[in-house]
């Protein structure tokens, strides 16, 4: 009997609670919607900007080949003479610049990678206190120096130094490599520091407890386990070196030579673009070929990003 009389009462309570659960506050819904629209809009603007840039550079870059103004054969040759009146000209051979960019990038990475990784190991494993107090701020300052200042220093110190010691003109592949090495060093150091610091302390203890010395622990365990992260830092640095224009252009000499002699002035893709973009008329083949070079720069950067993706994925699996 009691149950029967109680039943309707209880049901009434339940429906009112259910109603409340079904009808959330209108104001909250509005705030949620606004937030969603704002973030969605930001994301779409970003995506549209990126894709229009990609589309613009790609279409500009392949245009001269489609219109037949420049043949691929001409573009991938070593003969650069964009205003040449010789028979068969003008010549838009860009292979020297592509190789030039690759060369400065590789050589500066070759110098900076061991130096940067070594410094990172010192900061994390050997002397963390000194690293935190002195090296860390020093690296932040290095990152903050504008590239024109790097170029200016290179122009004032390194170029004359090379000139005086070797008897060449000073503007050279070597000068570009030295300037770039310093510029990409902070990237490599900070990525390496992050990677090495993320290795759990328990692994170091495991190694020491087996009787390993500090250097054995560093060389056999820490470097090995953080290799994907270290390589990512190096590739990030290379991407920066490949894309750097101003500082390189100031010291490298800007002659269209093949980049196989350290003391000779050469050109890179970026230096050719910055030097010529203001002096060429829109729509001419001379102007268009610069866009083709920009496209190559873009493709190389995409390649670097792809490499980094692969590295970090491998790091997660290992």
């Amino acid at each position: 009997m009691e149950q029967v009389t109680n039943l309707p009462n209880k049901k009434l309570e339940e429906t009112s609670l259910a109603e409340e659960l079904r009808s959330p506050a209108k104001k909250l819904i509005r705030i949620e919607q606004r937030g969603r629209i704002y973030t969605l809009l930001s994301a779409w603007i970003l995506i549209i900007t990126l894709f229009s840039l990609l589309f613009f550079i790609t279409s500009k870059g392949i245009m001269p080949f489609i219109h037949g103004e420049i043949t691929l054969q001409n573009f991938f040759s070593t003969h650069w003479g964009p205003t040449s009146a010789e028979p068969g000209g003008p010549f838009f051979g860009s292979i020297n610049f592509i190789l030039g960019s690759l060369m400065v990038t590789l050589l500066s990475a070759l110098i900076s990678a061991p130096l940067g990784i070594g410094a990172a190991i010192f900061m994390t494993e050997i002397s963390p206190k000194f690293g935190r107090k002195i090296l860390q701020p020093a690296i932040e300052i290095l990152v903050g120096i504008p590239s024109v200042v790097y170029g200016f220093i290179g122009l004032t110190l390194i170029v004359p130094f090379i000139r005086n010691t070797t008897g060449s003109i000073g503007f050279s592949l070597l000068a570009g490599v030295i300037v770039l090495s310093v510029m990409i060093l902070p990237t490599i150091v900070s990525m390496s520091v992050d990677t090495i610091q993320s290795i759990p302390q328990s692994l170091r203890e495991g190694s020491y407890a087996l009787g390993a010395t500090r250097w054995q622990t560093i060389s056999r365990l820490l470097v090995r386990t953080s290799l994907p992260g270290l390589m990512t830092g190096v590739i990030l640095g290379m991407a920066r070196a490949f894309g750097e224009a101003l500082a390189v252009q100031m010291v490298i000499g800007n002659s269209p030579n093949l980049p196989f002699q350290l003391m000779k002035p050469i050109s890179t893709l970026t230096s050719v673009i910055t030097l010529n973009m203001g002096n060429t008329v829109q729509g001419t083949p001379y102007n268009s070929v610069l866009w083709s070079m920009a496209l190559i720069l873009l493709l190389m950067t995409l390649f670097f990003i792809l490499l980094i993706r692969l590295m970090t994925q491998r790091g997660k699996q290992g």
């Binding site: 759990p200 328990s202 692994l203 203890e205 495991g206 407890a209 087996l210 090995r224 386990t225």
Partner: peptide, 13 residues
């Protein structure tokens, strides 16, 4: 004197 720790700590090798 070998040591085994609280958390298993094999190297990521």
């Amino acid at each position: 004197v070998g040591m085994v720790f609280q958390q298993p700590n094999p190297f990521p090798l």
